[in-house]
């Protein structure tokens, strides 16, 4: 089901403004990663979709129906909690069948569906175990099975992998994506891990201080960030504040192109990704900067250079190029791509 937020605002009792006039549309069958630093309102957005929170202002639509005042019981939404929130007194089987029982599905059907999910989640041998007898990854899969059992129209994950080891987190991430592809259900997951969001999501919703900064594909938010926040939050970046002069802006003695609509002599923020800078050795007079340190990082080498204005830049050189500049080398820089935002 499609999800739409129209000017949604959420003020908690006590006056904390968690979400401030948020509008966005999520298409049917999409998998969207909700990304933002802590306190950006991402969990609130999720809870507004479930109905566990009601908006102070604005409307929430699910599948073309206004659900703003609908209680969570009637929204047919699946939610996987951050700490799973499994029913501790129930077996894996009973946890998964919980929602089906509430829907008054026949016993036969319940059994069929639960067995199917146990198989799908590779949990068959754990049906009679209690949650505290399972590992974190297994509990996570039970939580997912429990959410999927009543065939929700929307599946939501609240920081689903936060409490799991790196290795298993990778596996689960792939698994969740696989589940999404097989069920085709519209899914949202909250995360503060951008790598996770970029890897798993069809589109990423970037939130900051309770506002939508951008909603776009991973490529869009990375290659065409719409705001300074998105540019600096997603991926590594060098950020410099500069005044605009005669329609261009200069960093490290390199003139960069600027959107002509920006007013002259305004302060702007210049963002250059480390991968968008090329360096080559040059004589001290011609050079822009001097290498301070470089480090091998697998797919690329990171190189820190100091410009003549004493600013430190991070530059990434693909490992295929094989040349690592040693500390002290003078280099010329070429900026392949940059973003300029009004302040």
């Amino acid at each position: 089901m499609a999800i739409e937020f129209v000017e949604v605002e959420k003020v908690y009792p006590g006056g904390t403004r968690s979400v401030r006039g948020v509008s966005f549309q999520i298409r049917e069958g999409e998998m969207v990663g909700v990304l933002g630093p802590s306190g950006s309102g991402k969990t609130t957005v999720l809870r507004l979709i479930t109905g566990l929170e009601r908006p102070t202002k604005g409307d929430v639509w699910i599948g073309g129906r206004r659900v703003t005042d609908l209680p969570p019981q009637q929204r047919n939404v699946g939610l996987v909690f951050q700490n799973y929130a499994l029913f501790q007194h129930m077996t894996v089987y009973d946890n998964i069948s919980f929602g089906l029982k509430e829907k008054r599905v026949s016993q036969n059907e319940i059994d069929h569906r639960v067995r199917e999910l146990l198989r799908f989640m590779r949990l068959e041998t754990y049906a009679n175990r209690f949650p505290h007898e399972l590992s974190g990854g297994q509990q996570q899969r039970v939580a997912l099975a429990r959410a999927l059992a009543p065939r929700p129209q929307i599946l939501l994950f609240d920081e689903p992998f936060a409490a799991i080891d790196t290795q298993i987190r990778r596996e689960l991430r792939t698994f969740v994506r696989q589940v999404h592809e097989e069920t085709g259900v519209t899914s949202l997951f909250v995360t503060h891990d951008q790598e996770e969001a970029l890897e798993v999501a069809d589109r990423v919703l970037v939130l900051h201080e309770g506002r939508v900064e951008q909603l776009g594909t991973p490529e869009e938010v990375y290659e065409r960030p719409e705001t300074l926040f998105v540019a600096s939050f997603i991926g590594e970046s060098n950020v410099w504040m500069r005044p605009l002069q005669n329609g261009h802006v200069e960093v490290a003695g390199i003139a960069l192109p600027v959107d002509p609509s920006l007013p002259d002599s305004a302060e702007v923020a210049v963002v250059v990704r480390p991968k968008d800078v090329q360096i080559e050795p040059a004589s001290a007079d011609e050079a822009h900067a001097q290498v301070i340190r470089s480090a091998f990082k697998g797919a690329y080498s990171a190189c820190w250079v100091r410009t003549k204005d004493c600013e430190i830049w991070e530059v990434h050189i693909p490992s295929t190029e094989r040349h690592r500049e040693s500390a002290g080398t003078w280099v010329r820089m070429r900026v392949l791509k940059s973003f300029v935002f009004p302040r």
Partner: peptide, 19 residues
Amino acid sequence: TQEQAAYVLGASPWRTLWR
């Protein structure tokens, strides 16, 4: 959170108390 999980799975507050 278990209570909220029950609500989202369709259980009324009364049913949640019992189950």
